[in-house]
């Protein structure tokens, strides 16, 4: 059974039909990616899984349990953490405090401390800036902080919303390298990206979202070879 199973999910924002019956699965231990252009509904999908947006119909099952009508803070406790679009770091808190907030749901102090060490090992630049207000970090560092913070919830499923957005190519490379490392250490990942090239290289399974519908679903490598994807998303004719 898949770790995350989304079935015929519909979401409305007022009169706008943002998700029009999408279905997809994320297998345990894998990286799945949702690619698509601006406004396709990628972020809406993640926000609905996290409980910030209520679905109008359809089901979301995490590890067999229905989470479609659950409050966001309860979903986090089940093991889903999100690094939101635009990073969402708490600029008024220090880097250290942001990381602590990431572990908000946990009471195992010793384990949290161990995880924080692990995460700071993944993102050594954050260690130098622990005492700094996170609003003063660069965009790349904020993105690292957002991912690090989500990891401190010790999620079984990590949702990443456009980790490459607005970052220099070199930093994007670093971040995707780390995403792979996170996955290799056992965390399942659902990655939402506009950067189809990087996303498909990092993922096992790929889905292409176009105006609220999944139009292509396949093995990520195969997708990156398909003509439609090459033309529309990879800029290769």
């Amino acid at each position: 059974m898949a770790l995350l199973e989304v079935q015929d999910l519909h979401v409305h924002y007022g009169a706008v039909h943002a998700l029009q019956g999408i279905s997809f699965t994320v297998e345990e231990g894998q990286v799945a990616t949702l690619i698509g252009s601006n406004g396709a509904g990628k972020s809406t999908t993640l926000r609905t899984i996290s409980g910030l947006v209520r679905p109008s119909s359809g089901s979301i099952r995490f590890d067999g349990q229905h989470i479609g009508a659950m409050a966001p803070h309860k979903i986090v406790r089940l093991g889903i953490a999100q690094s939101p679009e635009g990073r969402g770091v708490f600029a008024n808190l220090t880097v250290h405090e942001n990381l602590e907030i990431g572990a908000y749901t946990r009471n195992d102090r010793a384990e949290v401390a161990r995880d924080r060490e692990r995460v700071l090992h993944l993102f050594p630049r954050l260690r130098e800036r622990l005492k700094q207000l996170s609003g003063t970090l660069s965009g790349g560092e904020q993105q690292m902080l957002a991912i690090a913070r989500a990891l401190l919830a010790r999620p079984r499923l990590l949702l990443l919303d456009e980790p490459s957005l607005g970052l220099a190519p070199q930093i994007v490379k670093t971040i995707f390298q780390i995403i792979r490392e996170i996955n290799e250490s056992g965390t399942t990942i659902l990655l939402v990206e506009q950067n189809a090239h990087m996303a498909l290289r990092a993922a096992n399974q790929g889905y292409v979202l176009e105006v609220g519908k999944i139009v292509l679903a396949d093995d990520a490598h195969k997708l990156s070879q398909s003509d439609e994807v090459r033309k529309a998303y990879l800029g290769i004719s």
Binding site: V76, Q82, P84, F90, T105
Partner: peptide, 18 residues
Amino acid sequence: RAMRAVSYDTKTAALMGI
């Protein structure tokens, strides 16, 4: 800390399990 997080960004705070 949770109060300060909520005051900065309610939605992201909810994503942290608050």
